[in-house]
C-alpha cells in the first residue's frame, strides 16, 4: 500500500488536478477575496491622481503569461479610464504589441475612452535598456509614431508630454526581469515612480523593492489581479479563476502532506 502510494502514476495526479479545475469551473464557487497591502497601495496611488494625469503601462509579456497579467491590465485600465487618467501603453516584449493593443482598444471601447485623447499605444521598440533611457530624454526620440503609424506630434494627448517628467507612474506588467530594468534605469536615473504587476514566478523577487519604496505598489499574480478586480468592484476572470485556484492548491497541499507522511512512515519501517 505504502509503496503504491510512493510510486503513484503521475497521470493519476494529472487527472486529479484536471478534476480540481473542471468541477469548480462548472460549480461557479465564490470565495471571499482579501486585498493585500501591495495591491491596495497601487490602487490608492492611482486613485489619488488628479483627472488628466498620465500614467504609462508597459505590457512586457507575451501570450504565455496572458492568463495572469491580462486580467490585472484590464482592471487597471478600467480604473484609469473611469477616473479620466490618460494612459500611454508600450512594450519591450516583441510578442506583446498585438495583444496589448487589442486589450487597450477593448477596455477603451467599454469605457468610452478615445484613442489619441484618453490613451495611446506606442507599440514595441527593440533595445530594452536603451528604450527606457531614451524616453527619459524624449519619448518622441524612441517612438516617433504610435502603433497605428500616427506621428506623435499629431496625437493630441501627447502634445504636452515630452518625457518622464510629465508621467505620474509607470506600471510594468512583467513576465520577466523588465521591472528591475525600469527601476534601475527609469526610477534611479529619472526618478520616475514605478509599480509592477508580475506573474507568480516573480513575486518573491519584487518584495525587496516594495519594502524600500522603489515600487509604489505590486499586483502579485492572479491573486493580485483578483484583488484589483475586487477593489474596482468589477468581478471578472481573475476572481473566477482564483476561486478555482484555491481548490487546486488544496489538492496540491493534500498530496504534499500525503507524500510526506508516506515518506516518513517508510523511513521508520526501514530503520
Amino acid at each position: 500500500m505504502l509503496d503504491k502510494l510512493m510510486n503513484i502514476d503521475r497521470r493519476i495526479v494529472f487527472i486529479l488536478v484536471a478534476l480540481a479545475v473542471i468541477i469548480p469551473t462548472k460549480l461557479s464557487v465564490n470565495l471571499p477575496v482579501s486585498v493585500s497591502e501591495p495591491t491596495q497601495k497601487l490602487y490608492d496611488y492611482i486613485d489619488d491622481l488628479p483627472a488628466g494625469a498620465t500614467i504609462m503601462i508597459a505590457f512586457d509579456y507575451g501570450p504565455a503569461s496572458l492568463p495572469e497579467l491580462h486580467p490585472m491590465a484590464r482592471a487597471v485600465l478600467k480604473q484609469c479610464f473611469e477616473k479620466n487618467i490618460r494612459v500611454i501603453g508600450l512594450t519591450l516584449a516583441a510578442d506583446a504589441p498585438t495583444l496589448a493593443n487589442t486589450l487597450m482598444e477593448e477596455v477603451a471601447e467599454e469605457n468610452e475612452a478615445m484613442v489619441g485623447e484618453d490613451y495611446v499605444f506606442l507599440g514595441y521598440r527593440p533595445g530594452g535598456t536603451l528604450v527606457i533611457l531614451g524616453m527619459g530624454n524624449s519619448i518622441a526620440s524612441v517612438f516617433d509614431s504610435d502603433y497605428s503609424g500616427t506621428a506623435l506630434a499629431e496625437i493630441p494627448m501627447m502634445e504636452n508630454i515630452k518625457n518622464y517628467d510629465q508621467i505620474s507612474l509607470l506600471l510594468d506588467l512583467a513576465s520577466g526581469s523588465t521591472t528591475e530594468g525600469w527601476i534601475t534605469y527609469a526610477n534611479a536615473q529619472y526618478d520616475l515612480r514605478i509599480a509592477s504587476g508580475v506573474t507568480g514566478v516573480l513575486i518573491s523577487q519584487m518584495y525587496p523593492f516594495l519594502q524600500t519604496g522603489q515600487l509604489v505598489g505590486l499586483i502579485a499574480g492572479i491573486s493580485g489581479a483578483a484583488e484589483y478586480e475586487d477593489l474596482i468592484d468589477t468581478p471578472a476572470k481573475a476572481m473566477k479563476w482564483i476561486n478555482i485556484e484555491s481548490f487546486v492548491h488544496l489538492l496540491i497541499v493534500g498530496l504534499v502532506i500525503l507524500g510526506n507522511i508516506a515518506f516518513f512512515i517508510r523511513n521508520r519501517q526501514e530503520e
Binding site: V17, E68, G221
Partner: peptide, 20 residues
C-alpha cells in the same frame, strides 16, 4: 519555498485559463 508556492500559483493559473 515562497518562490515555489508562487510559481505553482502561476502555473495553475495558466491551466485554469486553458480549461476555461
Amino acid at each position: 519555498g515562497s518562490a515555489f508556492g508562487n510559481t505553482v500559483m502561476g502555473r495553475v493559473a495558466l491551466l485554469i485559463q486553458r480549461v476555461d
